[in-house]
């Protein structure tokens, strides 16, 4: 089903804005885009097919990241050279992801437990559940480790990026080599930058997520970028990958403009509310809550799939 075939009841608009406000506030509070939460919830709560949910979420993400990039530019947190190079890999990944989704859209349905279920719903639900479980457990483990460290139970060195590993990556003499002075990197293979861009672009195009939860740690732990530069550059990158994603999904008719507008109204306001409350809560506790939230998302995806299988 495309955006044109999905009839959105305008009476649901206020609910969609409230939904955007909540996800935006959670995203702003936890410091992420919330795309990984937004898409399955649009499918579960509002009944949007996954392809339309992905296309529309990329639209709202494009607006959100534009607003955040303007703010990060003020703090000088963006490495424009790194972002520009990474965009090439990201754009290729986004297109590949959108094409995979297109194949799934026309893949038809299969029988599971005596019920007919479309392949796209089944595969996307599985991928989302796996992604949320991975993300949730990683954040809960990391936050608990940090809380223990704060209590003096674990050595400080456990949180320091593996500098030896970073040096190994930087030492890869795979031509062409580039220098990134704004990130303090003298020389690194272009293929490392393109590889990180492609992997996150693939997730973005297929799942409608910004990929920030992978790209940001990759920039810090694989390339050795300073954290603030990684966050700013990541946002700049999300702005472009989301814009490219919107364009490519637009050509396939997957972007529902009314949904994008409703979500944008909610998320832009919600993100500011959430971000201002982050300062009041401790970082590790915020990340622990985020991990728990991811498992709530898994539960909702699994319940919906189970209901579909039992009730048809």
């Amino acid at each position: 089903m495309s955006a044109g075939e999905f009839s959105f009841n305008l009476a649901n608009m206020p609910w969609m804005i409230v939904f955007g406000l909540i996800v935006g506030a959670l995203g702003g509070f936890f410091g992420v885009g919330g795309g990984f939460l937004m898409v399955p919830m649009l499918n579960v709560v509002f009944g949007l097919p996954y392809n339309v949910a992905v296309g529309s979420d990329l639209g709202q993400m494009c607006g959100m990241s534009t607003a955040a990039t303007v703010r990060h530019m003020r703090f000088g947190n963006i490495d424009f050279k790194l972002a520009t190079l990474m965009i090439v890999g990201t754009a290729t990944g986004v297109e590949a992801g959108a094409r995979i989704l297109e194949v799934l859209k026309h893949a038809g349905s299969i029988m599971v437990a005596g019920k007919n279920i479309d392949l796209m719903t089944l595969i996307m639900s599985g991928v989302y559940a796996a992604l949320l479980i991975f993300l949730g457990q990683a954040m809960i483990r990391e936050s608990m480790r940090t809380l223990r460290r704060e209590a003096g139970q674990v050595e400080m060195s456990s949180e320091v990026p593996a500098s030896g590993y970073v040096l190994k990556i930087r030492g890869l003499k795979l031509w062409p080599m580039v220098s990134l002075p704004a990130s303090g990197i003298e020389s690194i293979s272009l293929w490392v930058i393109l590889g990180i861009g492609f992997a996150t672009g693939l997730l973005s195009g297929m799942l409608g997520v910004g990929g920030g939860f992978i790209r940001m740690p990759a920039l810090v732990y694989i390339m050795g970028c300073p954290t603030v530069v990684a966050v700013g550059t990541d946002l700049f990158e999300i702005m472009f990958s989301a814009a490219f994603g919107v364009a490519t999904h637009g050509f396939k008719g997957n972007v529902h403009l009314v949904v994008v507008l409703a979500l944008l109204i909610g998320t832009t306001v919600g993100a500011q509310i959430g971000a201002s409350y982050t300062r009041r809560a401790g970082g590790p506790r915020v990340r622990f809550g985020f991990g728990a939230l991811a498992f709530v998302g898994v539960l909702m995806v699994v319940v919906k799939l189970a209901l579909k299988l039992t009730m048809g």
Partner: peptide, 21 residues
């Protein structure tokens, strides 16, 4: 449709970002 898909989110984002500044 394609132009609106791109321009609408970017315009709202710029409005919010610059407005906050």
């Amino acid at each position: 449709y394609l132009v609106t898909c791109l321009v609408m989110p970017i315009a709202i984002g710029l409005l919010v970002g610059v407005g906050l500044r």
